[in-house]
């Protein structure tokens, strides 16, 4: 009976899920997203530190010239569950950036080297500046981008890999617009950002387009969900705990009810 109860409760909820997932899939026909094996998927998923560190390098050297990541701080790079750079590395990374601070005692703003507690420096002072520098298109902030698109990490990876030279005949591209197989609407204002050797990895990994796309997507996923590892670990513990408690309480309940059920 118990298992039956469980089963049906699940069925109810999955029914609702099925409907909703059906709905989110029913959007315009789009090429099916690429789905690489992410280390952070699944019940015990964790980030690959080396990949995150490489991903940060790709972000820093390629993406950061247009895309901000304004919700992430340099100190986050050294925190547990992330790229886990050492404290010295984080300080060194932060100090490469010039940060406006102030006002000082004379009432003037001044420029100082970045500190770990500073937020990632944005390439443009505001959205308008960013738009005007990019032909009217706003390169979105990448802090939570991996959570802000249906398909998440798969979608970002697919878009990075989805540039094709051959444009289908039914698609007309305006100036400064590129064809992308996976972008919704198939048109994108960003030129192909990654090609083999765009960066030179310090750990010796071959910087193929695919590798860089994977690394930077992982990095973006971490930026969007910095507590993913703790969440999954805590999740496993709490589910296990609740399972045990449920069984214990169920046994008590059975005992209590056996008092009257035997009487009838």
């Amino acid at each position: 009976m118990k298992t039956f109860f469980l089963k049906v409760n699940f069925i109810f909820i999955f029914l609702i899920f099925a409907f909703i997932s059906n709905i989110s899939n029913s959007k315009e026909a789009q090429a099916e997203l690429l789905k690489p094996n992410w280390s952070f998927d699944g019940f015990f998923g964790t980030f690959d530190r080396a990949s995150l560190q490489r991903g940060f390098q790709v972000y820093k050297e390629v993406c950061a010239s247009c895309h901000s990541m304004s919700l992430v701080s340099y100190r986050n790079l050294g925190e547990k569950g992330g790229p886990e750079f050492t404290e010295e590395e984080v300080k060194a990374i932060a100090s490469q950036y010039e940060v406006t601070d102030g006002p000082n005692a004379q009432g003037e703003m001044f420029i100082r080297p970045g500190r770990p507690s500073d937020k990632f420096k944005s390439p443009y002072p505001n959205e308008n500046a960013s738009r005007s520098a990019n032909g009217g298109a706003y390169p979105p902030d990448m802090s939570v981008l991996a959570k802000a698109r249906p398909g998440g990490a798969d979608y970002i990876y697919s878009v990075l890999m989805g540039y094709e030279e051959k444009v289908p005949e039914n698609i007309k591209l305006e100036d400064g617009v590129y064809y992308n197989k996976y972008m919704s609407g198939n048109k994108i204002r960003m030129s192909k950002p990654l090609s083999d050797g765009s960066v030179e990895y310090s750990d010796g990994t071959k910087a193929s387009e695919e590798q860089m796309a994977k690394d930077v997507t992982s990095f973006m996923m971490w930026a969007a969900e910095p507590h993913l590892e703790v969440r999954k670990k805590l999740g496993f513990k709490s589910v296990l705990y609740l399972l045990i408690l449920t069984i214990l309480v169920y046994l008590i309940k059975k005992k209590i009810w056996s008092r009257i059920e035997s009487k009838v």
């Binding site: 109860f5 469980l6 409760n9 699940f10 909820i13 019940f43 959570k147 969440r231 999954k232 805590l234 999740g235 496993f236 709490s238 589910v239 609740l242 399972l243 408690l245 449920t246 309480v249 169920y250 008590i252 309940k253 209590i256 009810w257 009257i260």
Partner: peptide, 27 residues
């Protein structure tokens, strides 16, 4: 203790499903 014990089982099963979704598919 009759209804309370039974309700508690129901609550825990519900919490179990809730926690699973919250921890593994929060969005």
């Amino acid at each position: 203790p009759f209804t309370t014990s039974k309700d508690l089982v129901g609550m825990l099963v519900f919490l179990l499903i809730f926690v699973t979704v919250m921890m593994y598919a929060p969005n």
